[in-house]
Amino acid sequence: MTDPNPVADLRFYLQSARDALLWKLEGLSEYDVRRPLTPTGTNLLGLVKHAAGVELGYLGDAFGRPSGEPLPWLEEGAEPNADMWATADQSREDVVGLYRRAWAHADATIDALPLDTVGRVPWWPDGKDEVTLHHAVTRVIADTQRHAGHADILRELVDGAVGMRKDNVGVPSDDPAWWEDYRGRLERAAREAGRNATRDADRSADRSA
């Protein structure tokens, strides 16, 4: 058993989430990385843009370490949700480059400060704005992993590509026929459960009559 190293653990899971999020952009057109795929407009490049701002805020500004990166979409008076999509003149390279610079800035904060360092989150309410670095890193990991999960689903909707990460896709088969059969079994099970629920509700109503 090795000695616990919380900083190394945090850095590992944060980087894993970052890598997964960027991997979902690979091989897609400019249109496909940007197009909204849910009723609320969720899109792949927008998730990356949002994640960059989160890191620069929680692991930079909150600890008195501003990056100097201009983020007009996060300024007061900016359009709602402006950090969740890329405009036509914001290139993929610009957004990905910003995210990578955000990584470097956040990692420098993690390396420079003890985990029990207390910072202040500018957008939290006064008197409730203190946060430890440990909490801030954990919060960023949770947020990035959540959006990596969103990206998993979006990428599958675009071209059917799936997987947890480049070196470990984490799925049981790459055979389309296997997946068609699997999905069919799930559909049949769902329909049967729906029929059973309707039958049980009808029986309960009859007993109550």
Rank of each mutant, 00 (worst) to 15 (best):
residue 64 G to K: 07
residue 44 L to K: 02
residue 51 A to R: 12
residue 49 K to C: 06
residue 48 V to E: 04
residue 59 L to H: 08
residue 68 G to Q: 13
residue 41 G to S: 07
residue 56 L to H: 07
residue 48 V to I: 03
residue 45 L to G: 02
residue 35 R to D: 11
residue 57 G to K: 13
residue 43 N to V: 00
residue 60 G to N: 08
residue 69 E to D: 14
residue 33 V to H: 11
residue 40 T to L: 11
residue 46 G to H: 07
residue 37 L to I: 01
residue 35 R to K: 14
residue 46 G to Q: 07
residue 50 H to Q: 00
residue 66 P to H: 11
residue 61 D to C: 09
residue 56 L to R: 06
residue 37 L to T: 02
residue 65 R to Y: 12
residue 66 P to T: 06
residue 40 T to D: 12
residue 52 A to L: 00
residue 50 H to D: 05
residue 62 A to I: 03
residue 63 F to C: 01
residue 62 A to F: 09
residue 39 P to S: 10
residue 42 T to I: 08
residue 35 R to Q: 13
residue 58 Y to S: 07
residue 68 G to K: 10
residue 57 G to H: 15
residue 67 S to I: 00
residue 42 T to L: 11
residue 64 G to N: 12
residue 51 A to E: 14
residue 54 V to Y: 11
residue 40 T to K: 12
residue 32 D to S: 10
residue 55 E to H: 12
residue 56 L to A: 00
residue 32 D to C: 05
residue 38 T to V: 00
residue 40 T to Y: 13
residue 36 P to W: 09
residue 44 L to I: 03
residue 69 E to T: 15
residue 46 G to P: 07
residue 57 G to L: 14
residue 61 D to V: 15
residue 32 D to N: 13
residue 58 Y to N: 12
residue 55 E to G: 04
residue 34 R to K: 08
residue 56 L to W: 01
residue 42 T to D: 10
residue 48 V to G: 03
residue 65 R to F: 10
residue 32 D to H: 15
residue 61 D to E: 15
residue 36 P to E: 10
residue 43 N to Y: 00
residue 38 T to G: 04
residue 53 G to A: 08
residue 56 L to P: 02
residue 36 P to G: 11
